[in-house]
Design a protein around this nucleic acid. Sequence first.
DNA 1: CGACCGATTGACACAGCTCAAATGAAGTGG
DNA 2: CCACTTCATTTGAGCTGTGTCAATCGGTCG
Lengths: 260, 260
Amino acid sequence: MEIGRPYSRLLYRLERSGTLSPQDRRRVAELPLTVTNIAAHQEIAHQGDAPSRCTLVLGGFLFSHKLASGSRRQITSFIVPGDIADLHTLHLSSLDHSLSALGPAVVAFLPHAELKEMLDISPQLSQAFWRETFIEAAICREWLTNLGRREAIARVAHVLCELAVRLQAVDLARNLAFLIPWTQTDLADACGISSVHANRVVQELRRMGLVDWDARQVKIRDWDGLARLGDFSDHYLQLRTARTAIKDSAPLEVKVPESV
Amino acid sequence: MEIGRPYSRLLYRLERSGTLSPQDRRRVAELPLTVTNIAAHQEIAHQGDAPSRCTLVLGGFLFSHKLASGSRRQITSFIVPGDIADLHTLHLSSLDHSLSALGPAVVAFLPHAELKEMLDISPQLSQAFWRETFIEAAICREWLTNLGRREAIARVAHVLCELAVRLQAVDLARNLAFLIPWTQTDLADACGISSVHANRVVQELRRMGLVDWDARQVKIRDWDGLARLGDFSDHYLQLRTARTAIKDSAPLEVKVPESV
DNA sequence: CGACCGATTGACACAGCTCAAATGAAGTGG
DNA sequence: CCACTTCATTTGAGCTGTGTCAATCGGTCG
């Protein structure tokens, strides 16, 4: 987990929309940070907290979640390396969700004060970070559609497609296969279904030959089939360049690499 | 609708988190704008479009929506006067959702160029607008939880509570009653349920004595009961003052554009 | 070896969906 | 001012996707 260059993934993301000036890159790279190991299932921040720093994921996965009716958990996002998990704490007084680690993770904490100062100085950086916020919101809207208007198997397929694309964009998936330390219950809580049903859906996806799924390893065997089933199109992720990097052309007519 | 001061509600919102300098207020007030009447059900922007201006709602209601599986509509947000409906088009290349009017509405279009220029000049304004984005995202997460982990009647109750609070915050609801030109089908598409079921839920809410609901007029008769049923707490809206406003103040006169 | 956790299975219940039709309210045009 | 259309609401009757409950199985770790 290249701790030596903790900002590389973040910078890579910020530059998706356009190049940053060398100066701006330096500003980001020189932000003070505290690298911390997080244990599996550890809660980093709790709903209602008012943290004074943001959390950049360097390795592993975090997720944000909320409770409904006191006991029912809804996962509101998966946060992958290169993402800032709680940028909104910069301007909102209290956190509207909790933040936890899916498995063991490595994060860097960035103090609000320095972050704010940096953003005040550079409108370009401010824009780049703001843009990340917008993408996050677009993902949230897509999830909303997923929960509101697709049935269980399509929801799961959609989430898998999204993760594959997002992870591939940060080099954490190759050949549409990736490792993620979740349980079927986590998946269920992201998809708004019960864990029992999540299990049945996973089995059905296996049976249909769409995915291999052993423990924490997910491999998409039939991208077209899964994307069709999950009604997935990656436009909302705004990864123009990243997508070409992944598979060099037409979005949904992608061929699955034969190898692996 | 007070067209004479189109920015009043926007300014009011931007200043929730802290006062703007007179200069910044002037910058906002002097933004060039094109006021336009929108017919009921008119689509203002379509998924995939790349508009070159943002849409500020002056009167009436807009909503953003997406299609799943080609035909199933999910409403992803209700946009009320004072909201900017599509601020994200400022930095994202294409719109990830469509934008339409619930009933007749009045909007002001703000060209991206001038908006960007203004935000580049003033970090304070930039922050204030960014903050609005964060609130929008928080609302989206709450909706996600709503769809994923609450049953139908609670979803509807939650949406009603949210609208009441948001509208009361911009003086468009008084005594927990408001006018909104939606149909039960619109409500259903926001809550991820069928319109038939939405109807049954509405009837149940009436029967329980929680709301009065004639045509477009919604009146919450038992706030505590409805909020409890909908598992609603307004923290995520980040409206410090809103709750007290709801309980005891008598908001000002309100008008929804009747003709347009 | 026992304890624990996650995956898996089966049986059953029910919330909410679909289909279909009736009712009601609000124009619209003759 | 009345037929006619249109659109929203309402109601009824099955049907089904998904939830809940309760075991069982299997792997991992101390």
